[in-house]
Nucleic acid binder design. Structure first.
Lengths: 208, 208
DNA sequence: ATATATTTGTTGCATTTGCAACAATTTACA
DNA sequence: TGTAAATTGTTGCAAATGCAACAAATATAT
């Protein structure tokens, strides 16, 4: 995974951040991040840790919209951040905020590492689109079975093996695929009965 | 909608494209675009027209994955473009291809409109993420009813009115929401019975 | 203008799925 | 280490939805 400051040495990272007027904040676990942010049009990068975006229903229900990990982006530029959405740190988390307009401010564009930075940023944004495309591909499958099989196919391809360990808990996976967890467990059992997969905890083997 | 060459005059656009070694191609209707592309790691921008990405099933079924219009992006950088996917022009369409590495080639970074171009590109990519996020928000709704209501809410907000005309045919909408079209029609009827909406062709009025 | 293609409307039926309500197991942490 | 919290497993049931197979209405092309 590329990070925003890939191929820039530590000294220059500090300089770069100063030029960008970037704001880097360290949060403890379980902090509502958005409540502290007073920026206008910004991109936020998760340097370390992870956050959950939680949608608060009109009648008090909470839905996890997404979970972002190291290297992932959010911000007004990328998503409609509304009143109803909280962004909660899942662990100690460091986030860097950059104002959109500062991406091309006078100071930064003259620096010798600007090009590298821009390339990193574009790469990160592209990866973000790629991730979303993958999730959309899963979500558009009509049945839980197809969602699971497609997810396993992707994992298998990524890991280069018919056997792999999924990087999510089953609860998180159900959320990611947007299906009921218990119904998903049921479908996993059917897949096993049909000899399409074998599982051991979160270790999956494709049998076809 | 921002376009890649926003705020750059026509003369400079030509220069910019030359510097970027950008390839601009005009396609007639119903052409398979990807079959002609011989680039490595690229971003493609739809300058004019529209395309459909179509997934070809192992047993001959076709599914429309997505439809991209003017200003939207695709390419190896943004999506896994595989054997099974075709990209078909829906009308006469102009597409510009840019190699990722050329985004920061020596010639281009010295030009006076580079900054504008970079900002446009980042804006376009961000918009792309935003679009995907919106679609994901819809797709994660568990019922057709909720998908429709959320879609209408978004449209209503965007248009700033309780009455608006949806920019898709109902067939396309069903595809976008990934639900069966006939089941969607049924649900639309329920929504009308429940006095939540009124429709006239593709003109929707929210009654709440 | 007319034939052809596309979109829309409708309905029965089988299947899938969400939901609820548990128990059992595993993990986190004070 | 012990207790609380989170995750996983299971199942009955009602509701939602995909699918198929049409007819009707629009739109598109020659």
């Amino acid at each position: 995974m590329t990070n925003l400051f890939e191929n820039i040495n530590d000294k220059n990272i500090d300089k770069l951040k100063r030029f960008l007027r970037a704001l880097t904040v360290n949060y403890p676990k379980n902090i509502n991040v958005l409540s502290n942010v007073n920026l206008d049009n910004y991109i936020a990068i998760i340097d370390k840790g992870s956050v959950q975006f939680i949608y608060n229903d009109y009648d008090g229900n909470k839905t996890i919209i997404e979970e972002l990990k190291e290297g992932e982006l959010f911000g007004t530029l990328l998503s409609s951040i509304t009143e109803e959405v909280d962004c909660i740190t899942k662990e100690q988390t460091q986030i860097t905020y950059i104002e959109f307009n500062d991406i091309t401010n006078d100071e930064i564009i003259k620096s010798e590492f600007y090009i590298v930075f821009i390339k990193n940023l574009i790469k990160l944004l592209s990866d973000q689109v790629k991730n979303k495309n993958n999730r959309i591909e899963l979500l558009t499958k009509r049945t839980t079975r197809d969602k699971l099989l497609e997810y396993f196919r992707m994992q298998s391809q990524e890991k280069g093996s018919k056997t792999f360990t999924i990087p999510l808990t089953y609860t998180e996976l159900a959320n990611y695929l947007s299906v009921d967890r218990s119904a998903m467990t049921r479908e996993l059992n059917y897949l096993k009965e049909d000899n399409l997969i074998k599982t051991n905890k979160r270790r999956i083997t494709l049998l076809y």
